[in-house]
Design a protein around this nucleic acid. Structure first.
Lengths: 207, 207
DNA sequence: TTCACGTTGTGATTTTTTTCACATGATTGC
DNA sequence: GCAATCATGTGAAAAAAATCACAACGTGAA
């Protein structure tokens, strides 16, 4: 299957989300310039992105929203249920848990890990919680492919290593730590402090 | 002053953070290949980035860590205290509050807004909380330049507009809404669902 | 002093990403 | 039926970002 850049995937997922909203209220078809307005990406970019997944519209009616949505769904192929593990159930970890268990029906944080005895062996928001020491044991018996890291920065690398040694090759890193990873592992860094510092920088400097 | 891309700023802020750690334990000087190993960026990229801010090392001892840090600090210029406003004090908003008030000494979420009466007119984590209806009034009397949006997706645009009409031109958007903004406004989108969907995608597809 | 070594700074190049611009094709109004 | 209109798909161009590769330099050992 054709390789596709992370940026394109990101935008496709955005179209996907917007299409769902669009279909609830608007007509059955949609134009690239509409997606452009909704996203802020240029209409040429929208068309290029849709080319990538081999979906073709008509020059008269643009794209059939429902078909397009289905095409993107097929392409990203995350419709079936998907299990995730989360390490770190502090304030941030619980917010993440809350956010994901609330929203999407197709993804689910299956298990959580922490070192705080208050969190362990409970079920929080439908997520079974274990002591971090049991990661290997627990992960062995699941088919989790994505790990979320929401621990203090100093422990992030350890947790990442543990995930990887259990065959997990896609990580969400909510710490500012720059993880050292083998090249086949995907990581998305969500660095809250970095984001706000950038925002502060550009609050005063033009782009 | 020279314009500099968001990507470069992002990396400079990462170097800045790592330099602080590095200086606590390691020698007074540092090489581009060390920063490369720590960050995952190539050493050539590190050198290019440092060129941008006009800091020059020596070919024998690399960079003087302290001087370099000072140069980056001067460049990003976010050392003095900096006030921020946060709208939305739900689970996510409070996690953000917790995170930022805990960490950096130089930035501070000064005021918060919500519609939940339980949150209003209290001080949470050193952040004074008001009803959203009082945004104009409260923001008028501060010199806040950065706004954080952590409300339900459907309200995000309204809040953004309100921020902008009060002269705030740099936003952190924690909702999946794609904001429509005038071109001078900087926005950093932190789209949690998008991130995890990307991670799921790349868990199964090579890059 | 001189040479070997390792690092910087950077021009040139490559790669990636985005935009331009237009031929093509479908539809509508007349 | 035909012209006018408006979107698409895409080759070509441009812009942005990253990498290559090497001259120049400073140091330390001999």
């Amino acid at each position: 299957m054709k390789k596709v850049s992370s940026k394109v995937v990101e935008r496709l997922l955005i179209y996907r989300r917007l299409l769902r909203l669009y279909m609830q209220t608007d007509g059955p078809n949609i134009y690239s310039h509409q997606l452009s307005r909704m996203t802020g990406f240029s209409s040429a970019q929208v068309r290029r992105d849709l080319m990538e997944i081999g979906y073709f519209g008509s020059s008269a009616h643009g794209y059939d929203a429902e078909e397009l949505l289905k095409s993107i769904d097929e392409f990203v192929n995350i419709s079936e249920d998907f299990s995730i593990a989360l390490v770190g159930l502090g304030q941030l970890g619980r917010a993440i848990l809350d956010y994901f268990q609330g929203h999407g029906p197709n993804l689910r944080i299956e298990v959580g890990f922490d070192i705080n005895p208050q969190k362990i062996d409970r079920v929080i928001q439908g997520c079974r919680c274990f002591h971090v020491d049991r990661m290997d044991e627990v992960l062995k018996n699941t088919n989790i492919l994505v790990g979320i890291i929401a621990v203090p920065a100093t422990n992030a690398q350890d947790i990442a290593d543990r995930f990887i040694s259990n065959g997990i090759n896609s990580l969400l890193n909510y710490t500012p730590t720059r993880l050292q990873l083998p090249p086949h592992v995907f990581v998305e860094n969500i660095d809250l402090m970095n984001s706000i510092e950038k925002a502060i920088f550009f609050a005063r400097r033009p782009r």
